[in-house]
């Protein structure tokens, strides 16, 4: 049960952010970047497929990745609040991506040594993808932060708005502790300080400041989402809800 719960968190992060990035398709700031964002989205959806299928196997109730992706209630999605936030402008999207990638890169590095072979294999494959995502989003944060007055102002604003969702990246509950004891989850206690280091290095180059207002939100990990989530799900689930029990 703990493992199932953890896999949902991991898979839902990929699924929901992949869905969000897919919204950009056809609307990117320049054609080259349209293709880049779609590529990241495709990696994330690929991760969601392998993680959620595995979650279905672990659960043993006959649900596969699609059933989990499309047919849960909102409260049963366990993704971070950060990833369900709206795309906003390109700066918002890249900042969201950067904060997330920095965390996922560190996480996958650790998960490679999970005693759960399948999880370790997923982490190993996803790490390669995530390293590239991080490089891409971090470089963009630097370009935008260091670029023009307008871009600096905009992306500083993105950081101010998204910072409040970053504590949740390191959310740990009793269920995780069980997994840590079993060796399925490696020790992640120093993840936050490593993340802060990585993030600070990039933000320095981008001449951006971490906001002084450090009031933090959490809820996604427990299934309590923001208002955006319902709309996101109504698109995601549309076909499966309107035409239930069909092959596509």
């Amino acid at each position: 049960m703990e493992k199932f719960n953890y896999l949902l968190r991991l898979g839902d992060d990929s699924l929901i952010l992949g869905q969000r990035l897919a919204e950009w398709c056809g609307h990117g700031p320049i054609l080259e970047e349209d293709i880049a964002m779609t590529n990241i989205s495709l990696d994330l959806i690929g991760q969601a497929i392998s993680v959620l299928n595995y979650a279905g196997d672990v659960e043993c109730k006959g649900r596969d990745g699609d059933a989990l992706a499309f047919l849960r209630l909102e409260k049963d999605y366990k993704n971070l609040l950060l990833v369900e936030q709206k795309n906003g402008d390109f700066g918002d999207t890249m900042m969201r991506q950067f904060l997330f990638d920095a965390y996922r890169k560190l996480l996958f590095e650790r998960l490679q040594s999970s005693t759960d072979k399948q999880l370790a294999a997923i982490a190993e494959k996803s790490l390669k993808e995530t390293r590239y995502h991080f490089k891409h989003s971090a470089e963009w944060v630097i370009r935008l932060g260091d670029g023009t007055d307008e871009s600096h102002k905009r992306v500083q604003n993105s950081l101010n708005n998204l910072w409040r969702y970053t504590d949740e990246l390191f959310y740990v509950d009793a269920s995780d502790k069980v997994l840590t004891k079993q060796g399925i989850l490696p020790d992640l206690s120093d993840l936050k300080s490593l993340w802060l280091q990585e993030v600070n290095t990039v933000l320095d180059l981008a001449t951006l400041q971490i906001p002084t207002n450090n009031w933090q939100f959490e809820g996604g990990r427990k299934g309590v989402h923001s208002e955006h989530m319902g709309y996101l799900l109504s698109e995601l689930q549309f076909m499966q809800r309107v035409y239930p029990n069909m092959e596509w």
């Binding site: 080259e32 293709i35 880049a36 891409h136 470089e139």
Partner: peptide, 20 residues
């Protein structure tokens, strides 16, 4: 060919455009 502001992004864009 492609458009990019700097060499780094040119390589990344080339990866996404020409090696999918």
């Amino acid at each position: 060919s492609l458009r990019a502001p700097d060499a780094q992004l040119a390589v990344e864009n080339a990866r996404d455009v020409y090696t999918r």
